[in-house]
Simulated scan of single mutants.
Amino acid sequence: MKGKVNGLSAPGSGRARAQDIDRFVGNRMRARRTMLGLTQQQMADIIGVTYQQAHKYEKGVNRIAAGRLFQIAQALGVDVGFFFEGMSGIAEVSPSPQQRMLLELARNFIAMPNRRHQEALCTLARALAENDDN
């Protein structure tokens, strides 16, 4: 594994990096639960999961889906951002040139007030894509 920054894997280490973030969020969850004097079983009951699942969340073994994280934040009386406070070493993600063009295209498409122009652009894009296939 590559070097660590503030306990998190350095950029470029893929899945290991995601697991580090899962563990970080789980540690924050456990710290807040403990601060409130809740047991893992009580926490599991509040968020509607098994004790084992709550334990896996706290250990970072299982990832917490966005909806579940929101539910946990409400149960613990914190904002979702609480779980990421103090986490650093996250590289800024910048879009590729192709992604930038796609975003610009989408913005311009939505800004077109004329539905027929939008349809014409779709027809043009389809024709160009089919032409590239041949």
Rank of each mutant, 00 (worst) to 15 (best):
K2D: 03
G3N: 05
K4S: 10
K4M: 08
K4F: 10
V5A: 02
V5W: 03
N6Y: 15
N6R: 10
G7A: 06
G7Q: 09
L8A: 09
P11T: 08
G12P: 05
G14A: 11
G14R: 15
R15M: 08
R15N: 09
A16G: 05
A18M: 01
A18F: 02
Q19P: 03
D20H: 09
I21S: 12
R23M: 03
N27W: 01
R28C: 05
R28H: 09
R28Q: 12
R28K: 11
R28W: 08
M29L: 15
A31C: 02
A31T: 10
R32L: 10
R32F: 09
R32M: 11
R33G: 11
R33D: 07
M35N: 05
M35I: 01
M35A: 13
L38T: 01
T39H: 13
T39Y: 06
T39S: 15
Q40G: 12
Q40C: 09
D45C: 03
D45I: 04
I46C: 04
G48E: 02
T50N: 00
Y51D: 04
Q52E: 07
Q53I: 03
Q53F: 07
H55A: 08
H55S: 13
K56L: 04
K56W: 03
Y57K: 05
E58L: 02
K59A: 08
K59G: 15
K59W: 02
V61R: 10
N62E: 06
I64L: 12
A66R: 13
G67Q: 07
G67W: 02
R68M: 15
R68H: 10
Q71H: 14
Q71F: 04
Q71C: 07
I72F: 06
I72T: 03
A73C: 02
A73R: 05
A75S: 13
L76V: 06
G77E: 04
V78Y: 09
V78H: 10
D79C: 05
V80H: 00
V80S: 01
G81N: 15
F82D: 04
F82I: 07
F82W: 15
F82S: 05
E85Q: 14
E85V: 11
E85Y: 09
M87K: 15
S88E: 10
I90W: 05
I90N: 06
I90G: 08
A91D: 10
V93E: 07
V93L: 07
S94P: 04
P95Q: 06
P95I: 01
S96E: 12
P97Q: 08
P97H: 13
P97R: 12
Q98C: 04
L102N: 12
L102M: 14
L103W: 04
L103R: 14
E104Y: 11
A106F: 00
R107C: 08
N108F: 00
N108P: 00
N108V: 00
I110G: 02
I110F: 04
A111D: 06
M112W: 01
N114Q: 09
R115T: 06
H117E: 04
E119L: 03
C122L: 05
T123G: 00
L124H: 12
L124D: 09
L124Q: 07
R126I: 00
A127V: 08
L128H: 07
L128M: 13
A129R: 12
E130N: 13
E130Q: 14
N131E: 15
N131A: 14
N131S: 15
N134Y: 11
